Amino acid sequence: MLHAIHHIAVICSDYARSRRFYAEILGLPVLREVWRAERGSWKCDLGVGPAQIELFSFPSPPPRPTTPEACGLRHLAFAVPALEPVIARLTAHDVAVEAVRIDEHTGRRFTFFRDPDGLPLELYEEPPAGLPPS
């Protein structure tokens, strides 16, 4: 039976740029990083709660076909206790962040931004268990 998400894999066009974005700007801890010589590819595992994001660098990966409605993964959402501190950190690093919206079904606040390759990422405000929404 499925009980959790273990990891999400992201192929990036510029490994150093994406590693810096996810590790330094988003602040995700690097769990391990390996050079896979047989594939000419870096792999970096980053922690995010109980799950991981795997960054891969493959030689000349094809671009994403279209956004946001291409078939496949639409976006990756990060739960945060409050949007403002994360938005401030992103904008301080010149990352464009969309206007905050309200989820019409849950009443929670959320916003979108993009990683260095244009992958849509979401911040979804979800206070820690036991706390009311802000």
Results as ranks from 00 to 15, higher is better:
R89N: 13
P61G: 07
A88T: 09
L31Q: 15
D103F: 12
I25Y: 04
V100G: 06
R101I: 00
V10M: 01
L131G: 00
L119R: 11
V30T: 06
V97S: 07
H93F: 07
G27T: 02
V95T: 12
P59C: 08
I53N: 05
I53E: 04
L31R: 15
C71M: 11
G107E: 03
S60Q: 14
T106D: 02
F56L: 05
W35T: 12
R101T: 06
H3R: 12
V10D: 01
H6A: 08
W35D: 15
F78G: 07
S13L: 03
R39C: 02
T66G: 05
A88C: 07
E69Y: 15
I8M: 06
L83M: 13
W42L: 01
D117C: 11
G118E: 13
R64P: 01
H7N: 04
E33A: 14
L55A: 00
P63T: 11
R74H: 11
P61Y: 05
L123K: 10
G47N: 07
H7I: 00
T91I: 03
D14Q: 14
P133H: 03
L46Q: 01
H105P: 00
A37G: 14
L31G: 03
L26F: 01
R39A: 10
V100L: 09
L31C: 06
A77K: 05
P65L: 14
D115Q: 03
L73M: 08
A37Q: 09
V97H: 05
S60K: 11
Y22H: 05
F113A: 03
F21C: 08
C44H: 08
L123T: 09
R39T: 11
C44T: 14
M1F: 08
V34N: 14
R109N: 00
E125H: 04
D115Y: 00
I102L: 10
P132F: 07
T67A: 14
L123D: 13
P128F: 10
I11L: 03
R39N: 13
R89A: 07
R89E: 11
A129Y: 09
R20D: 12
A92W: 13
P81M: 05
R20K: 13
V80Y: 01
C44K: 06
